[in-house]
């Protein structure tokens, strides 16, 4: 990575909407460095991942060293350096969900979606992964499909609903498990 000051605003070419939200976010905090997580969220939402360029741009914007941004990107599991699939399925594997059969559901999802756990499909349509506790334990097993929570995936039909949603989002037709 280059030192601070190496990236101009123009080179990131963020959308006016994202830029506007970034300016707003920076004004929310008594110290603008506190906005770093929000900036990373906003850029990742637009770009799908955080490139070196993005990290330098954020560092520049907040007047901190790029390493102070990079160390957050490598620490927080939500930030990523590579693009994920268009749809992201996160299946909870922590105890309450595991007790209700989360790992079995995981196997079924791998087969139904033709995607290995912890991987993305080559065509970029889907990422399937295990997650730690999603705080919806009474409905276990639960999964997040992008921003939507699916519960009771061990009940008949629930898993099929999830699979159909994922296939719809991926642009494939619905089919049976």
């Amino acid at each position: 990575m280059r030192p601070v000051g190496g990236t101009s605003e123009a080179s990131m070419k963020l959308s006016p909407n994202t830029l506007q939200r970034i300016e707003t976010a920076m004004g929310h905090y008594p110290r603008k460095q506190s906005a770093v997580m929000t900036l990373l969220h906003l850029i990742q939402e637009e770009r799908g991942f955080l490139s070196n360029e993005a990290i330098e741009w954020v560092a520049d914007k907040l007047e901190i060293q790029p390493i102070k941004v990079l160390e957050l990107v490598t620490f927080y599991p939500h930030y990523r350096r590579k693009k994920l699939g268009k749809t992201r399925v996160r299946l909870c594997r922590t105890l309450p969900c595991a007790l209700m059969g989360a790992y079995r559901v995981g196997d079924q999802l791998e087969t139904a979606l033709n995607c290995k756990m912890g991987r993305s499909k080559d065509d970029g349509t889907l990422t399937l992964e295990y997650a730690e506790c999603l705080a919806a334990c009474a409905g276990g097993p639960v999964a997040l499909v992008d921003e939507d929570l699916y519960e009771n995936l061990n009940r008949p039909g629930m898993l099929q609903t999830l699979v159909d949603t994922v296939r719809d989002r991926a642009g494939e037709g619905a089919s049976t498990l």
Binding site: R31, Q33, S34, A35, V36, M37, T38, L40, H41, L62, I64, K68, E71, L72, F75, Y76, P77, H78, Y79, E132, C133
Partner: peptide, 23 residues
């Protein structure tokens, strides 16, 4: 303020560090 997937942010001083823009 949205977190980014770290359990330890529930610990109050960890949360404060996170809000300051740090690990």
């Amino acid at each position: 303020h949205r977190g980014a997937g770290a359990y330890i942010c529930g610990e109050e001083t960890g949360l404060i560090e996170s809000m300051e823009g740090k690990r």
